[in-house]
Structures are given as C-alpha cells and as structure tokens.
C-alpha cells in the first residue's frame, strides 16, 4: 500500500458519513410512525376528555370508545416496535418517549375509569393498571434489562402516572360540578396513594423529579375539594357506597 493520500485516509470520513446518513434514514422512517402515533394519541385524549362532562352512569360508553381508539394506537406502537427493535433501543428512545408516555397515560386513565377490566369482574373506577398491564395492552415488553429491544420503561410509566394524577385532580372538581360527590373521595385516596408511592423513590434531579414535585399540589387541590364537600355535609357515608 503506497502513500496515495496524505494525513487522512479518505475512507475514514466516507465511512463515518455513511454511518450518520444511515441514521438519518432511520430517523425519517421512525418519525413517520411517531407522528401517526401522536395523532392517534390526540384522538384518544379527545375521547377520554368526555369523562369530565359525563355522569358516572354513562362513563362505560366513554371507556368503550376510548378502548376502541387506543386499539389504533396499539397497532402503530406495534409498527414502531418492529421498526425499533432492530435498533439499539436507547439510541433512539428519546424520539418516541414522549408519545409512548402519552399513550400509556391514555391507557391508565381509561383503566382508572373502569376500562380493561379483567373478564369476570365488575368494571369499577379507581383501578391502577400496573406497568405490566399497560405493557400487555400496548403489546410490548416492559422494563427490559438484558435484551436490547423495544419496551416500555419504568420512567415512561411513572411519567404517565404523573399525567394521570394531573388529570384526576381536574376530574375531581368536574365531578362535583356534575353532582358526583363520591368520585372526589375515590380520587383523593388514589392520588394520595400514588403520592406516597412517589415519595418512596429516590429521584435525582431529572425530569421525573421535576414533574413528580407537582403531585403534592394535586393532592392538596383534591383535598380542598373533599374539604368543601365535607364542610357542606355532602360527603357520602361509607354505607352509601
């Protein structure tokens, strides 16, 4: 091999360019899928937002509609998962993490309203879907450690839980407006439990920490609603439930 080039073997930069160009192609492909997911996620939120203006008796209809539109999302997640499983997960994870969090939130909220009830049991509000259940609904594995494949991370699930807390605080007030005085109690207990859960975590100064700091304010907001109700003797007795 004679010295046919100077200091730099041109092949070095040709190869590197090819590598980053390949990444660009991958990114474009993923972006299309993720945009679809984002659109579908918006329509799920659209359906679920009806819960704020729907009496408890009519909630099952909202839930059924939401489950239907979540199914579309799951199809897209499957596509994403197939495309992404060929790639190093954390190299690309930031691209879709937000959208997956939103999808997980939709599923969690739907589950809380009484969706995804296991066969044979009665649908009732207030259920917390575990990360495993959310993963099952999304048809993707969760919290992978060994295998480098597409999955739902703990951080994403926790972010979705925080969104759920925000949404439920809003629902507590709106329930009262609808004349439902029982739901705020259920919500209050539910988000207190989650708040206690989050306090167990040793969070570093990251995105999760910043958002989870807001949970205590949601707890207080809902406590205020419950306080307003109890002050006026509107809290249903345990026997009435």
């Amino acid at each position: 091999m004679a010295e046919r080039y100077g200091m730099v073997n041109p092949a070095i930069f040709e190869d590197l360019q090819a590598r980053v160009d390949e990444d660009t192609t991958v990114r474009d492909e993923l972006r299309d899928i993720i945009q679809t997911l984002e659109k579908q996620s918006r329509s799920v939120q659209f359906v679920l937002s009806r819960a704020h203006s729907t009496l408890a008796s009519a909630i099952p209809e909202v839930v059924t509609a939401a489950e239907g539109s979540i199914e579309n999302e799951v199809e897209t997640i499957l596509k994403l998962s197939q495309a992404a499983s060929k790639l190093p997960y954390y190299k690309w994870n930031a691209m879709w993490s937000r959208q997956i969090q939103d999808a997980a939130f939709g599923i969690l909220f739907c589950g809380w309203l009484g969706g995804y009830t296991p066969k044979g049991s009665e649908a009732k509000p207030g259920r917390l879907l575990t990360i495993e259940e959310v993963g099952e609904i999304m048809k993707i594995p969760v919290n992978l450690k060994g295998v480098d494949s597409f999955h739902l991370t703990i951080e994403e699930y926790l972010q979705a839980l925080i969104s759920l807390v925000d949404e439920l605080a809003r629902l507590a007030r709106n329930s009262v407006t609808l004349g439902d005085y029982r739901r705020p109690l259920l919500i209050s207990q539910f988000i207190k439990d989650l708040h206690a859960g989050f306090q167990i975590l040793n969070l570093k100064n990251d995105a999760l920490r910043r958002r989870s700091d807001g949970i205590k304010y949601r707890v207080k907001e809902v406590e205020d609603v419950v306080y307003d109700l109890s002050l006026r003797n509107l809290v249903p007795k345990a026997g009435e439930i």
Binding site: N143, I154, E155, Q189, F190, A196, I200
Partner: peptide, 26 residues
C-alpha cells in the same frame, strides 16, 4: 393507617410496586 372503605387493599400493592421501581431506579 389510611383507611379507604372502597378499596381496603389498595395501599400496600402500590407501595410494593413503587418499592420495586425504587430499586430499579437506584
């Protein structure tokens, strides 16, 4: 000590779940 008449068992599964998360995050 939190007493929820509608779901008496709710607290500890959540705590257990978060304890799992804590060790993963740690």
């Amino acid at each position: 000590t939190m007493d929820d008449p509608s779901k008496p068992q709710s607290a500890s599964p959540i705590v257990a779940m978060f304890e799992g998360f804590r060790s993963e995050l740690d």
